[in-house]
């Protein structure tokens, strides 16, 4: 087990290194001067020269990568000349709303999608199943921002039940925080629900054909016990895997959802950074999100052991 964890940890290092190489090359392989891009449009000549010296841009490419990578490992993502702060500070400020939104979305999606998938598999090839599958195709096709505006129009503008936009920190009270999170989390969870429900259904269908399900039924166990204790537990691995893979969708969705709902998180920061052509921030956000994505999937791999006692590393 310990060996597996060590091996799995080691295996993520090359992936993260490759992400870093890619982000590094993205900037160096453009015809323009990287220092000028990093400094932004309003930088002075001195600032550009300062960056050039700091990153060693007159050195060979490999040395440059070593300098840049070394700074990254120390948590130095560079400086945003547009926001007049270090990128690390900037991201730290914006972390809370994004974390809140992502957590709420994941919880909501699992709560909706898993039961939907199980019911669709249980009522395989009936109208319930077809309805769930149709919903899932719709969920994949209707873009996040269209869903967002639709929900705002119905629940915030027409019915007036919830605030239109904005974010409150949880430190300012639970209800104001929670009520501003309902619509964004619902919006973002649509595509996630579509993904998870589909996999849950497929995985359950496969499991329900197994011999031990028949045995459980023959013992006279109720449908619910068979479905949940015998079926869902075995079907859980693909479901958990897809939750991890879906984090990529979630991250893309965060950028859009935060823009639609005016939430000052990292997604909103990304868009602001692009509009301001603030490349250090963009680089850092890409690295950060990729790191999170890889890390979540690593944790999920490790969690298989808990889900399936047959897996022994």
């Amino acid at each position: 087990m310990l060996m597996f964890v060590a091996r799995r940890l080691l295996a993520t290092i090359p992936v993260l290194a490759m992400v870093a190489v890619f982000v590094f090359l993205m900037l160096r392989l453009t015809p323009a001067d990287p220092a000028a891009i990093l400094a932004g449009d309003n930088a002075t000549t001195e600032q550009v020269a300062q960056i050039r010296a700091k990153l060693g841009l007159d050195q060979p490419l490999l040395t440059q990568f070593a300098i840049w990578g070394g700074r990254l490992l120390h948590g130095d993502f560079g400086e945003s000349f547009f926001f007049k702060k270090t990128v690390a500070e900037l991201i730290a400020q914006r972390l809370e709303p994004t974390l809140a939104l992502a957590t709420a979305t994941i919880l909501l999606s699992i709560l909706i999608a898993v039961p939907l998938g199980v019911i669709a598999a249980y009522r395989h090839e009936t109208w319930v199943d077809r309805f769930v599958m149709a919903l899932s195709v719709f969920g994949f096709s209707v873009p996040v921002f269209v869903i967002g505006y639709l929900l705002i129009y119905v629940f915030a503008i027409t019915l007036g039940w919830l605030p239109v936009q904005g974010y409150r920190s949880i430190t300012q009270g639970f209800w104001p925080f929670f009520e501003r999170l309902i619509l964004p989390a619902s919006t973002l969870s649509v595509i996630y629900v579509a993904l998870i429900a589909r996999i849950t259904r497929a995985s359950m269908l496969e499991v329900m054909n197994e011999d031990y399900i028949r045995t459980a039924r023959a013992k006279g166990l109720s449908d619910r016990v068979v479905l949940i204790r015998h079926g869902l537990r075995t079907a859980a691995i693909p479901i958990v895997t897809v939750i991890g893979i879906g984090i990529a969708l979630l991250i893309g969705g965060v950028v859009v959802t935060e823009s639609v709902y005016g939430i000052p998180g990292i997604g909103r920061l990304t868009v602001d950074a692009v509009l301001a052509r603030d490349f250090p921030t963009i680089q850092a956000v890409v690295l950060l999100f990729s790191f999170v994505y890889v890390l979540v999937n690593l944790l999920i791999d490790l969690a298989y052991v808990l889900l399936d006692p047959r897996i022994r590393y």
């Binding site: 090359p14 992936v15 993260l16 290194a17 490759m18 992400v19 190489v21 890619f22 982000v23 993205m26 900037l27 453009t30 891009i37 984090i247 990529a248 969708l249 991250i251 893309g252 950028v255 990304t270 868009v271 950074a273 692009v274 052509r277 490349f279 963009i282 680089q283 956000v285 890409v286 999100f289 990729s290 994505y293 890889v294």
Partner: peptide, 18 residues
């Protein structure tokens, strides 16, 4: 593998900004 570890939309955003 490294490229796939970067969420697609984010990569597109970074490229457009560049």
């Amino acid at each position: 593998d490294g490229m796939m570890a970067i969420p697609g939309i984010l990569l597109a955003i970074a490229l457009v900004s560049l």
